[in-house]
């Protein structure tokens, strides 16, 4: 559905998107992750034909976003981050107008508008002026506008930005439903949201794709090591020596306290040394207060990748789904 190849966008003295390539297959829900200013919106604006790339190409459904822009625009539904709407129109009137511009035939328009109003949950608001809507309903109206012409591809830029937790949940449910019928590219910087909705993640940082894969494969691939935490009351040098002697050890850090000391142990991915640690501590007559494995989250991965890159090391692409 989307083929992006060496896509680059440069403004005066600044590269917003730097030579990125990726594809999105029909029916996928792809989460486009990144910090503010990472290049998510710029990429989406190029895909929605708002402006062209400086270099490279973007194709949607086989059509080039620059040379066949009109064909691309007929096939996409786009919701920009700010959700710009005509404040002076009524919700129903606005959706009808946009459906008309998007080529929905006159006879089907009324049905298309009614259907989208029911799907998005705008029934009570259909006669209200867009300018009088709350943030949540504005967001829904933007979403309704994006899907009213039943596009093949939906591009949603931060669809839950600025919403309260209840509204986020509602919009997320709508997005999940939409994902069953159409291909979806969804940008966000809320990681939990993308974990819940996306089947694949593209992580963009400083204009470059630094990770591409399913949430599970990305976290698993990035982990590489397993990490355990143990809180032990006993002589620190002896505990340290005991832990270092365990098979599969990769590294350890210690936070020594007056009574209890915390040991953070990194091991080979296949090693689980919790049983060994518990046995050793008990056999030596020491006390054990906590013993747990740390599971890496998407958030940890995100922080790890972006921090590594900020420290100067080049960000390398991770697992391909």
């Amino acid at each position: 559905m989307i083929q992006v190849s060496n896509l680059t966008k440069r403004y005066a003295g600044f590269t917003a998107v730097d030579n990125i390539s990726f594809t999105v297959e029909k029916g996928e829900i792809v989460g486009f992750l990144g910090k503010n200013g990472a290049g998510k919106s710029t990429t989406m604006k190029m895909l929605s034909c708002f402006f062209p790339p400086t270099f490279g190409s973007a194709r949607v459904a086989g059509f080039d976003c620059v040379t066949d822009s009109m064909e691309v625009r007929r096939r996409i539904g786009y919701m920009p981050e700010r959700v710009p709407l005509y404040e002076d129109m009524r919700v129903e009137e606005y959706l009808d107008y946009r459906a008309r511009l998007r080529g929905v035939p006159r006879r089907q328009r009324s049905h298309a508008v009614n259907e989208v109003i029911a799907t998005i949950g705008l029934k009570e608001m259909r006669r209200k002026l867009v300018g009088s809507l709350s943030k949540g309903y504005r967001q829904r109206t933007g979403l309704a506008e994006a899907i009213v012409a039943k596009p093949e591809l939906l591009i949603l830029d931060e669809p839950t930005a600025g919403l309260d937790p209840g509204q986020i949940r509602q919009v997320r449910e709508v997005i999940k439903e939409l994902g069953k019928k159409t291909t979806l590219l969804l940008s966000t910087h809320i990681l939990s949201e993308v974990e819940l909705t996306a089947t694949r993640i593209l992580l963009i940082h400083r204009g470059r794709i630094v990770a591409n894969g399913s949430p599970g494969s990305l976290v698993g691939g990035a982990q590489g090591t397993r990490r355990f935490h143990a809180e032990v009351r006993g002589p620190v040098p002896m505990v340290e020596a005991m832990l270092k002697g365990l098979p599969g050890m990769r590294g350890m850090s210690i936070q020594a306290g007056e009574e209890w000391s915390r040991f953070t142990i990194d091991t080979e991915p296949e090693v689980d040394l919790r049983a060994d640690v518990a046995k050793f501590v008990v056999d030596n007559g020491w006390d054990l207060r906590e013993l747990r494995e740390e599971r890496m989250t998407l958030e940890d991965l995100f922080v790890q990748i972006t921090r590594t890159d900020e420290a100067g090391a080049p960000a390398t692409p991770k697992a391909e789904a």
Partner: peptide, 11 residues
């Protein structure tokens, strides 16, 4: 208001 973006990204 940003509505120009909506206008030019429509067909």
């Amino acid at each position: 208001s940003g509505t120009l973006e909506m206008l030019v990204t429509a067909p």
